[in-house]
């Protein structure tokens, strides 16, 4: 077994860790917040605020 064989296993392991972390966080987030909050983003908020400030 050479160093590069260990690195292959390390790469498999790290890939699984990154993937599992994203999946776990994704499930936790989806169960902690309502869909309305998560999908409330709208484009043009900065422009609308600028518009508001000019009117103000």
């Amino acid at each position: 077994m050479q160093t590069w064989n260990f690195l292959e296993y390390a790469a498999w392991g790290l890939s699984a860790l990154f993937g599992l972390h994203m999946l776990a966080d994704w499930l936790k987030t989806d169960s902690s917040y309502s869909e309305d909050v998560l999908t409330s983003s709208r484009e043009g908020e900065l422009e609308a605020m600028t518009e508001e400030s000019h009117k103000g």
Partner: peptide, 16 residues
């Protein structure tokens, strides 16, 4: 405080 949220109802927006 206001970053990303605006008058269209964005509660969670991308971070500027």
């Amino acid at each position: 405080e206001r970053d990303g949220m605006g008058p269209h109802g964005t509660k969670v927006g991308l971070l500027r």
